[in-house]
């Protein structure tokens, strides 16, 4: 069974149709990259897979189920922009520990496995020295690492990353790349949007080009050599990267 199966997906916001008949599948142990111009529906596609927006037509299945019917903790999601109150009274360790919350029932204690998952995620994202700091005392790139660590601590069966490398330095990007490739090797399916076409072959096993519809789907090298890539590249270079 594929980890994700999307068939004939349409998503409509009021009168704007963000996605117009998208089809793709994501097998286990595969990193699938989504590229496309700003406003092309990349983030909407991730949100539809996460169950955060409902299809106006078509189906989304994760592990064979609708996203809302999944067991809590199945999907780890890191949005492009965290619309949160950074003055909220939590430290880095508190935020990473939240990744375990969906897996804990009422009154269930935070057990040894939960503590171990949090410790491993903190170590994997090199956050050990920052673990006791308040979330507002970090740079944007460090905060992004915390949110990735929270998703990893959740031990999800599907990881959705919305432009996780935007705003992080080169060293952090390299460590994120190594981390994600390691998780994929262990069998985790990863769906990730990006603007960074140049490094796409390092990140992904497969690449899809989205502009409300899927314009190309294949290996990164094949997609980058196709005509679909040129148009996107021109667009992103003209308008620049933004969050």
């Amino acid at each position: 069974m594929n980890a994700v199966e999307v068939h004939g997906l349409h998503v409509r916001y009021d009168r704007v149709e963000a996605l117009q008949g998208v089809d793709f599948t994501l097998p286990r142990g595969t990193a699938l990259g989504i590229v496309g111009p700003n406003g092309s529906g990349k983030s909407t596609l991730l949100k539809a897979v996460a169950g955060l927006v409902q299809p106006s037509e078509g189906t989304v299945r994760v592990q064979g189920r609708r996203p809302r019917d999944l067991r809590p903790g199945t999907i780890g999601y890191v949005p492009q922009v965290e619309d949160i109150d950074f003055q909220f009274p939590v430290t880095v360790r508190d935020v990473v520990a939240m990744g375990r919350y969906p897996r804990l029932g009422p009154f269930q204690p935070f057990g040894a496995h939960d503590r171990s998952a949090v410790a491993r995620a903190i170590e994997a994202l090199d956050l050990g020295a920052l673990a006791g700091r308040h979330i507002s005392a970090l740079s944007g790139g460090q905060q992004q690492r915390v949110f990735v660590a929270r998703a990893i601590a959740q031990e999800p069966l599907l990881l959705l990353l919305d432009e996780p490398t935007t705003g992080v330095d080169a060293a952090t990007e390299d460590s994120l790349l190594a981390l994600v490739r390691g998780l994929v090797r262990d069998g985790l399916p990863v769906l990730m949007t990006t603007h960074d076409l140049d490094r796409a072959p390092e990140w992904f096993d497969r690449l899809i080009v989205v502009d409300h519809k899927i314009l190309a789907d294949g290996t990164p090298d094949a997609v980058l050599e196709s005509g679909a890539y040129a148009g996107i590249r021109e667009h992103t270079h003209t308008h620049g990267h933004h969050r």
């Binding site: 955060l52 619309d83 909220f88 939240m98 919350y101 959740q154 999800p156």
Partner: peptide, 11 residues
């Protein structure tokens, strides 16, 4: 703290 991500995680 983060209602969107919490919902995606199944809460």
């Amino acid at each position: 703290f983060d209602p969107v991500v919490a919902q995606a995680a199944g809460i």
